[in-house]
Simulated assay, not measured.
Amino acid sequence: MSLNTSRQLPHSPAVLAAPLAFIRTESGQIFANASFLDGEWVSRYGSQTLEVLRRMYPDMALMSIPECYTLQNERFRQPWKEVTEARYIDQLEVLPPMDWNASQSGASFKSSEMYGGDVTSIFASKDGRFFECRDVCTLTHQNIIAAVTAQFFAGESVNSGH
């Protein structure tokens, strides 16, 4: 994920759709909410500008709260990998599953425990194979099965058995 941490921000809070915050981009830690004071964005407590904060923390950035959450979530995501049936069943039984779905295309569920931010472990099964990733808990069953199909079944023909 590339971040433009030096972009120009509006000179007035009236043009913003979302509140801003100062965030440490290396750790994903939100340092402070931002307020517009005397024509510039400052930390809500201490009234420090981005320039001052960057002297202490060179990785400091000013971005919208939704962008901060996206940055935090990116740090926790992990790609799909194939796992054993035992791993799949264990995770299905260890905590009550969240958003457990099944269709002709496959089955999926999410761990009810967040790994961090909005990211949780997601599990899927398709054609007797089992998969796991870490991603946002808002992924739909259709998106999950589509991702697994694209990554692990892309070369298979619909009529491969005929």
Results as ranks from 00 to 15, higher is better:
P13T: 06
S47H: 06
L37V: 15
A17P: 09
E26Y: 09
V52M: 08
A21H: 04
R44T: 15
A14H: 10
V52C: 04
V15L: 11
Q48D: 14
A34N: 08
P13A: 14
L50M: 02
T49A: 02
F22R: 01
Q29W: 04
Q8N: 03
R24G: 03
R24M: 07
L20M: 12
S35G: 02
E51Y: 05
R55C: 02
V15S: 13
R54Q: 05
A21Y: 03
P19S: 10
M56D: 10
A32R: 07
T49W: 02
N33I: 05
R44G: 10
W41F: 10
H11I: 12
P13W: 08
R24E: 13
A14G: 05
A34H: 04
E51W: 01
Q48R: 14
L50F: 07
F31M: 10
Y57E: 13
S35Y: 08
S43D: 03
A21G: 06
L20A: 06
V15Q: 08
S43E: 07
H11P: 14
R55I: 03
T25H: 02
W41D: 03
A17R: 15
L16F: 13
R54W: 00
S6P: 05
S27W: 12
S27H: 09
D38F: 06
S35R: 08
F31D: 01
P13S: 11
Y57S: 09
A17Q: 15
Y45E: 15
P19K: 10
P10E: 05
Q8T: 12
E26P: 10
R24A: 11
N33Y: 15
A34T: 09
R7Y: 05
P10I: 02
T25G: 06
F31E: 06
L20T: 02
Q8M: 11
P13K: 10
Q8Y: 09
S35F: 02
I30Q: 04
F22G: 00
S47T: 02
V15C: 06
P10Q: 11
E40Y: 07
A21E: 01
F36R: 04
Q8G: 09
P10N: 12
V52I: 13
Q8R: 13
G46F: 13
A21S: 11
R55M: 06
F22T: 01
V42N: 00
M56N: 01
A21F: 05
R7L: 09
S12I: 09
V42D: 00
P19Q: 11
E26K: 14
S12N: 15
G39C: 12
G28I: 12
I23L: 13
R54T: 00
M56P: 01
A17T: 14
A14S: 10
V15T: 13
L16Y: 14
F31S: 04
R55W: 00
G39E: 12
S43P: 04
E40T: 09
A21N: 01
R44M: 14
S6V: 11
L20P: 04
Y45G: 10
L16W: 14
I23K: 02
R7N: 03
R24P: 00
S43M: 09
P13F: 09
Q29N: 07
V42R: 03
V15R: 07
P19H: 08
G39H: 13
R7Q: 13
A14F: 11
A34F: 04
S47P: 00
Q29I: 06
W41T: 07
L37Y: 10
S35M: 05
L20F: 03
F36E: 03
R55L: 06
A34K: 06
V42C: 01
L37A: 06
S12G: 07
V42F: 01
E51S: 12
T5P: 05
E26I: 11
